[in-house]
C-alpha cells in the first residue's frame, strides 16, 4: 500500500477508521503458541477476559478459537484456564 502524500492526508492526523489497528497483525511476535483443546473447554470464557490482545474469538457467547493474526503468545490464557484446555507449545516458524 503506497502511503499518502501530504496533500492527501486527512486534517490534523485524525484517524477516521475506528479499530483500524486490526489491519496491523501482531501474530508474528509469537515464540510460543496456545493450543486449544475444545473437549476440555467448558466455555467459561475466562481466556477471553484475560487475553491482552483480544485474540480469543467468541461467537454467540461461545469461544470459537484463537486468532493467530494477533496472538502474541504471552501464555496468560494457558495459565488462567481453570480446565487446562489451553496449552502452550513452541511456535514453528
Amino acid at each position: 500500500m503506497s502511503k499518502k502524500t501530504w496533500k492527501e492526508i486527512d486534517i490534523a492526523s485524525i484517524i477516521n477508521k475506528p479499530g483500524s489497528a486490526k489491519d496491523f497483525k501482531t501474530g508474528d511476535w509469537r515464540s510460543q503458541k496456545p493450543v486449544w483443546n475444545e473437549d476440555k473447554c467448558k466455555q467459561c470464557l475466562i481466556c477471553w477476559v484475560y487475553c491482552p490482545d483480544s485474540a480469543i474469538t467468541v461467537k454467540d457467547e461461545k469461544m470459537t478459537g484463537i486468532n493467530f493474526d494477533y496472538c502474541k503468545g504471552c501464555g496468560i490464557c494457558a495459565v488462567e484456564c481453570p480446565f487446562k484446555a489451553i496449552t502452550m507449545v513452541e511456535e514453528k516458524k
Binding site: K4, T5, W6, I11, S13, I14, P18
Partner: peptide, 24 residues
C-alpha cells in the same frame, strides 16, 4: 456513531506529511 481518534502517535513515516499539511 462515527468515532475518530484524535492526537495519535505519528512516527517517521507520516510526521513530516502531517506537519506540512498544517504549515499549508
Amino acid at each position: 456513531d462515527n468515532p475518530i481518534t484524535i492526537g495519535p502517535l505519528v512516527v517517521q513515516d507520516y510526521f513530516m506529511e502531517i506537519k506540512r499539511g498544517q504549515i499549508q
